[in-house]
């Protein structure tokens, strides 16, 4: 009487014989012995199953079929293995290194600027471009900083030795200390609601050290319209920071002072130490990342906007500072040294 155990015994017997099959002839004999149309052991098995009880038949049929497939495959494999090898294509040692593509890289500052531009573009912002050599009016006066204003000390300025005529037809006398002049130029001609960011290089007369360079990058933003409030400022900048640093980072706002905004706020991001205090946050748990505020009415007046009708908010951040926080860089000079061992850590 055939049963599952008998099939298993047959399978075990086959495995033993297969292990001993050393030639193509052995393999052929084995095929005849098990799968031969007349005397084959598996063929005989099928005949016996036909007499088994109807309840047992399906299961036994399946087992017999499995065994046949197993024998078929293993015999084919063995035969292929024993076949005399054909003259082949020379072997390649594919464990050798590949031929590398020349891989360029994007500077971390421009990569971050681009990322920030994308975030704001998705929020409907227009992205501005403007001259780095500026005039006093657009860099200071229009921003509520008359010549004797003490806030000018905050931004020690690099001046040109001689006024420079530029393609944008203004007479430049200094290197812009922030990107705000672009916003002034924009508002001078726009005279309507605005939603813009102004990224770019700015200059201050700071000596080189681990946190200062005489040139750095900024992004400033401006939203002007009817009914824009400080609440709008809050959610916009919280949204921006979380897109950049991660959704779980806390953000807080603290009063500050800028001549061109009132009220003004500094914006702090929770440190990665989660408030425990570390060297990066100087043990405070918070990182200052943005300056912001409601556009000062004097700025609106300078560009011919009615400060009764329009309100707006402005903000600004140093790109180097953000990049240092994002990438864990502790010396700002690395950005300007352009050591390829540094640059290549930012593949494109």
């Amino acid at each position: 009487m055939v049963d599952a155990a008998a099939i298993a015994r047959l399978r075990a017997a086959y495995s033993d014989e297969l292990a001993r099959a050393a030639t193509a002839a052995d393999v052929q004999a084995l095929r005849d012995r098990y799968l031969g149309r007349k005397q084959g052991a598996v063929t005989a098995l099928w005949r016996e199953i036909a007499h088994a009880s109807p309840e047992a038949r399906p299961e036994l049929g399946r087992l017999a079929n499995d065994l046949k497939t197993h024998i078929d495959t293993t015999l084919s494999e063995r035969r292929a293995a024993l076949a005399p090898s054909k003259p082949s294509t020379p072997r390649l040692d594919l464990t050798l290194p590949a031929r590398a593509l020349a891989r360029g890289s994007r500077h971390p500052l421009s990569a971050l600027l681009e990322r920030i531009e994308h975030i704001f573009a998705r929020m409907g912002y227009e992205i501005l471009d403007g001259p780095e050599a500026e005039d006093e009016y657009h860099n200071f006066e229009a921003l509520n900083m008359p010549p004797e204003h003490p806030a000018r000390d905050m931004q020690d300025t690099l001046y040109l030795a001689h006024p420079l005529a530029t393609r944008s037809s203004h007479l430049a006398t200094l290197l812009r200390t922030h990107t705000s002049p672009m916003q002034i130029r924009y508002m001078e001609t726009a005279q309507r609601p605005v939603r813009i960011i102004a990224p770019g290089r700015v200059y201050r007369r700071d000596n080189l050290d681990v946190t200062h360079t005489p040139m750095f990058h900024q992004v400033e933003g401006l939203v002007v319209g009817e009914g824009i409030t400080m609440g709008d400022l809050k959610s916009t900048l919280i949204g921006f920071l979380r897109q950049l640093f991660g959704e779980d980072r806390p953000v807080t706002f603290r009063p500050s002072f800028f001549p061109y905004t009132e009220p003004s706020a500094d914006i702090f991001l929770g440190c990665t130490c989660r408030g425990a205090g570390c060297g990066v946050c100087k043990q405070t748990g918070w990182l200052e990342v943005l300056g912001s505020g409601m556009v000062h009415p004097a700025v609106f007046e300078a560009v011919g906007y009615d400060p009764e009708r329009y309100t707006g908010f402005a903000f600004g951040a140093g790109i180097e500072r953000l990049a240092m926080l994002l990438h864990g860089i502790d010396d700002i000079r690395l950005f300007y040294e352009n050591d390829m061992r540094f640059l290549e850590q930012f593949p494109s």
Binding site: L128, K234, I238, T252
Partner: peptide, 19 residues
């Protein structure tokens, strides 16, 4: 400042194309 509400400014016109 933390007591001020958080709101999002409405967009009234499509932004201009990039510079």
């Amino acid at each position: 400042y933390d007591r001020l509400p958080s709101t999002f400014p409405a967009l009234h016109a499509p932004p201009a194309p990039p510079d």
